[in-house]
Design a protein around this nucleic acid. Structure first.
Ligand code: SF4
Ligand code: SF4
Lengths: 143, 143
DNA sequence: TGTATATAATACTTATAGGTATCATTTATG
DNA sequence: CATAAATGATACCTATAAGTATTATATACA
């Protein structure tokens, strides 16, 4: 139901960066805004770089930036990088494979829930996240 | 999205036991039907006993049985025992508390998903699981 | 009343996600 | 070309879920 901590972190990071689509962010700058454990944040940033929506520049004056407009980066894109197993169509009861032709009563219901979540994540871009005012103060204090 | 292994185990166990509501099952019998690691199964059985839907009888000729009809045991009842945190209304981004008055665009959508899942689990009883034929063969071979 | 058969309780081990520490590499710039 | 400032790679540590092992307790019944 809920996401892993790492997934939550990734969503927060990407949302922050989407506020300035072209800016090159250093890890230090991101850390100032979102208090994710510093070294873990660094590791996660390089991990996010192994995607088609984030790129890095090495060396002095380096950093990270989005590689396409935030309106073209969905939450699903992000989830696929940090937790690709999240939406895999697993059996409600956790079985690896269903041996029966007739599906049990939970099968279609759970498939429906998964499709619902999938649609929400696929239809929400980073741009959609900051249309309703500035949430920065909120995001600075994750407690 | 998906459940913990332990939750899946609990669902399988409860569904099996609901097929014979009054029967006293030994761990050995359950193990024969559902190949959950034996000692872990034993631990989980006693854990399930700390609920209002499962009771145990100690000593020789002892075992476990449901303490009320399977039609009155919902998947939500089971989930509450084995993973009470699963449905807690956490923030989409994993924040502990929301500092803002205006909610972000994900707030209502995620609340909706959670309500949907809650309704499915609360409205499905163990009796509902075995109306559409016998799934025993399937459940015996979780692979 | 002793023994076999069942669950209860507790402690230990292992697998994995989350987090930390260190060193290597890249590159702007004096 | 040396240095500083940034990311990259790797190894290690820690907290939690999953799984194992051992001992204690309850009870039917010969
Ligand atoms: S029919 Fe039911 S038990 Fe079988 S794979 Fe689908 S959800 Fe799982
Ligand atoms: S408004 Fe958005 S960020 Fe704030 S608690 Fe709700 S889901 Fe989380």
């Amino acid at each position: 139901m809920n996401f892993s901590k790492t997934t939550d972190y990734a969503f927060r990071i990407m949302r922050l960066m989407s506020q300035d689509e072209l800016k090159l962010f250093t890890v230090e700058e991101i850390y100032q805004q979102i208090r994710i454990p510093y070294r873990y944040l660094r590791k996660l940033m390089t991990h996010l770089t192994r995607s088609d929506f984030m790129e890095s520049v090495q060396g002095k004056k380096g950093g990270f930036r989005l590689s396409r407009p935030s309106s073209q980066i969905t939450l699903l894109d992000i989830l696929k990088v940090v937790d690709p197993e999240y939406l895999t169509g697993r059996c409600f009861f956790g079985f690896e494979n269903c041996a029966l032709d007739t599906v049990c009563i939970m099968h279609d219901q759970w498939t429906g829930v998964r499709a619902n979540v999938h649609a929400i994540l696929a239809n929400t871009s980073l741009a959609d996240l900051h249309v309703s005012g500035d949430l920065n103060e909120h995001f600075k204090q994750p407690k």
